[in-house]
């Protein structure tokens, strides 16, 4: 770290980095309190020795005890439901994931469960064409639960391995729309035993504190089993998932790193935390270079 001594300035800088990454002020203050205790207990004097302690804490928090991989059935149909607020990247992530499963030789089917947004069905169809998988759809404006029902029957009949269900974006405070989503969830539950096998909440990395409310409310209505963090190819760090993980047991599963088919990666907590401190580490490297020049 830039400042070697652990003093108030140092803590302030750390606080700013974490808050600047959207970790959220409450969690940041908690973390820093824990660090202060750690510093006293372990008699750490040099900030350079503190960074690994913090990183370790964050990595631990983010990777958790749960399994980060997707719950894919060995045989028979796996149903994955995608939920989230407007414009976060649900449909795009479905396209990317379809590509992934398709390349693994699995038989993939897509369900055009967003019947509301203009062009949503067509958007999913373009992805279906790109990847080379079929899309089950009805007309715009039709009942999304009915589309999903159709898709479930089609998936069973065609013996598909994976059914990826798109849904319309909705804000978590809209009770009616959340009920509509709950209905879709119940249809899936009823039609396929143990389904949905995954309910993935898609979060946009540029989102601030509101993502916490998204995780809570979507979790309540649709039993979210995993998080996908998109748009990490921008300058936002997505630190809000730290706050989410601090309060909830929902594992981080995937990250989106662009708009193309291949821009989906499994979540790597170490890489994520490293990026969180990228600014700090860069400063550190600079300082080392400067010192070696001196």
């Amino acid at each position: 770290l830039r400042r070697k001594k652990i003093d108030e300035d140092f803590y302030e800088e750390l606080e700013e980095i974490l808050i600047g990454a959207d970790v959220g002020v409450n969690v940041v203050m908690e973390l820093i309190d824990e660090l202060r205790t750690e510093v006293r207990k372990r008699k750490i004097e040099d900030a350079v020795d503190l960074q690994p302690v913090l990183s370790e804490k964050l990595v631990e928090l983010l990777s958790g005890k749960e399994d980060n991989s997707l719950n894919i059935q060995e045989s028979g149909l796996t149903v994955i439901l995608f939920v989230g607020v407007n414009g976060v990247g649900k449909t795009t992530t479905i396209g990317k994931m379809a590509h992934r499963f398709n390349s693994e030789g699995k038989k993939v089917l897509l369900a055009a469960g967003d019947t509301f947004r203009a062009g949503a069905i067509e958007q999913l169809e373009v992805w279906g064409d790109r990847v080379g998988v079929d899309v089950v759809k009805q007309q715009a404006g039709s009942d999304p639960a009915a589309v999903i029902y159709d898709a479930l029957q089609a998936a069973k009949k065609r013996e598909a391995d994976i059914l990826l269900c798109d849904t319309a974006g909705r804000l978590q405070n809209k009770t009616n729309l959340m009920e509509e989503l709950n209905k879709i969830y119940r249809v899936i539950k009823r039609e396929v035993p143990n389904a949905p096998h995954e309910v993935l909440l898609v979060l946009d990395a540029t989102t601030g504190q509101n993502a916490l409310s998204q995780a809570k409310l979507f979790g309540e209505k649709t039993g979210v089993t995993g998080l996908v963090l998109t748009k990490l190819d921008g300058t936002a760090k997505g630190g809000i998932v730290v706050a989410i993980r601090n309060e909830m047991d929902i594992p981080m599963k995937f990250v989106g790193l662009g708009e193309q088919m291949d821009d989906l990666q499994e979540f790597d907590s170490e890489q994520f935390v490293h990026a969180l401190f990228a600014g700090l580490i860069k400063d550190e490297e600079k300082r080392e270079v400067e010192e070696s020049v001196e």
């Binding site: 808050i19 990454a21 959207d22 946009d204 540029t206 300058t235």
Partner: peptide
């Protein structure tokens, strides 16, 4: 997007 965080 009004939900944007620090990156705004």
């Amino acid at each position: 997007d009004s939900m944007t965080g620090q990156d705004a």
